[in-house]
Computed example of a mutant assay.
Amino acid sequence: MTVTTSTPKISHRKTQPARRHDRGTVSWAKEKGWRHLVGIVTIIFALFPLLYVLSAALDSSGTLAGSNRLFGQIGFENFAQLFADPARPFGRWFLNTLFIGAVTSLASVLLGALAAYAFSRMRFKGRRLGLLSLMLLQLFPQLLAIVAIFLLLSGISDVVPWLGLGSQLGLIMVYLGGALGVNTYLMYGFFNTVPTSLDEAARLDGASHVQIFFGIILRLVTPILAVVGLLSFIGISSDFIIASVVLQDPDSQTLAVGLYSYVAQQRSENWGVFAAGSVLAALPVMALFLFLQKYITSGLIQGSVKG
């Protein structure tokens, strides 16, 4: 009687799921993993300056050399010093910035919306040339006209002092003139996405252009109005050169111009106070951004759908 022995067959089925898992991990890393890596690096690159400024604002040493270690010292002496110096009225600078930014943003939104509605809904001679002119004007920054702005406001001061050099209203007028072109062109693309059938139906009911504009169109283009207002406020809050030329009285200056006095001297020891003022200056912009967040994405995207 012979006994036959059979060698057991080794099954490779258990290793197949592991191989598939490894292949899936490799393919995920090639297709999507690098995006996560780029996103993490970008977030770190964007957050590091903010963390450094916040660390310098909480550091009582006041110098940049002492702020090499993040959050090595934590105190609020720099914030208290902001409001303790009578020669540097930080509170007045803060209110001036809010006033100039709010008035300019609201006026920019209104004037830009009126101009965009005219170009989008009305047909008149010179319409195409006007649109091309607005687009070409954006190629030249407002900084190139700083000498002309100074001479113009200086001449106006002799006739209308409250509108000339050194007045906040004169600075507001300068900001409105520089932002009207880009705001109009940005709103024009968004206004074209609103169906003209709404205008025609309103005209059949006897509505005028004013009633159509304020009663129908403005309600439908709220996202782009929020975006334009936000961008205008951010640009005005961070502007230094034009504001420093127009506003010369310390009591009428904005935050960007006033805070520069802390670090104007070489090897200044007021960098901590400057950082504290920068942190407080960013709060209105952050609050406005969070308040208008739901309009920002739609306002920037929908305007490019139809031109």
Rank of each mutant, 00 (worst) to 15 (best):
residue 227 V to Q: 03
residue 201 A to Y: 11
residue 230 L to P: 01
residue 226 A to H: 01
residue 207 A to V: 09
residue 247 L to I: 13
residue 207 A to C: 13
residue 197 S to R: 14
residue 219 R to W: 04
residue 240 F to Y: 15
residue 207 A to T: 05
residue 208 S to P: 00
residue 239 D to R: 13
residue 213 F to I: 04
residue 195 P to N: 11
residue 240 F to I: 11
residue 231 L to G: 01
residue 209 H to W: 14
residue 239 D to Q: 15
residue 216 I to F: 12
residue 240 F to R: 10
residue 193 T to W: 04
residue 221 V to W: 02
residue 213 F to G: 06
residue 222 T to F: 04
residue 205 D to F: 05
residue 240 F to P: 02
residue 223 P to K: 10
residue 210 V to Y: 03
residue 245 V to A: 13
residue 204 L to T: 12
residue 239 D to S: 11
residue 205 D to G: 04
residue 204 L to I: 14
residue 241 I to C: 08
residue 216 I to W: 06
residue 225 L to Y: 06
residue 194 V to H: 00
residue 213 F to D: 09
residue 226 A to M: 12
residue 191 F to D: 06
residue 199 D to W: 11
residue 195 P to I: 08
residue 231 L to S: 11
residue 229 G to M: 09
residue 206 G to V: 03
residue 243 A to G: 11
residue 226 A to C: 11
residue 234 I to M: 08
residue 242 I to P: 02
residue 240 F to K: 04
residue 236 I to H: 09
residue 234 I to H: 01
residue 217 I to N: 05
residue 212 I to T: 10
residue 200 E to L: 13
residue 199 D to G: 12
residue 211 Q to K: 08
residue 244 S to Y: 11
residue 226 A to K: 02
residue 240 F to C: 12
residue 207 A to I: 00
residue 195 P to T: 10
residue 241 I to F: 15
residue 232 S to W: 00
residue 192 N to C: 12
residue 225 L to H: 03
residue 200 E to K: 03
residue 220 L to S: 08
residue 244 S to H: 01
residue 207 A to H: 00
residue 238 S to I: 12
residue 196 T to P: 00
residue 242 I to S: 12
residue 231 L to N: 14
residue 244 S to G: 07
residue 205 D to P: 03
residue 191 F to I: 10
residue 222 T to K: 15
residue 234 I to L: 05
residue 208 S to D: 14
residue 199 D to T: 14
residue 230 L to H: 03
residue 226 A to F: 05
residue 221 V to S: 12
residue 242 I to C: 08
residue 244 S to V: 02
residue 210 V to D: 02
residue 244 S to D: 15
residue 209 H to V: 06
residue 215 G to K: 09
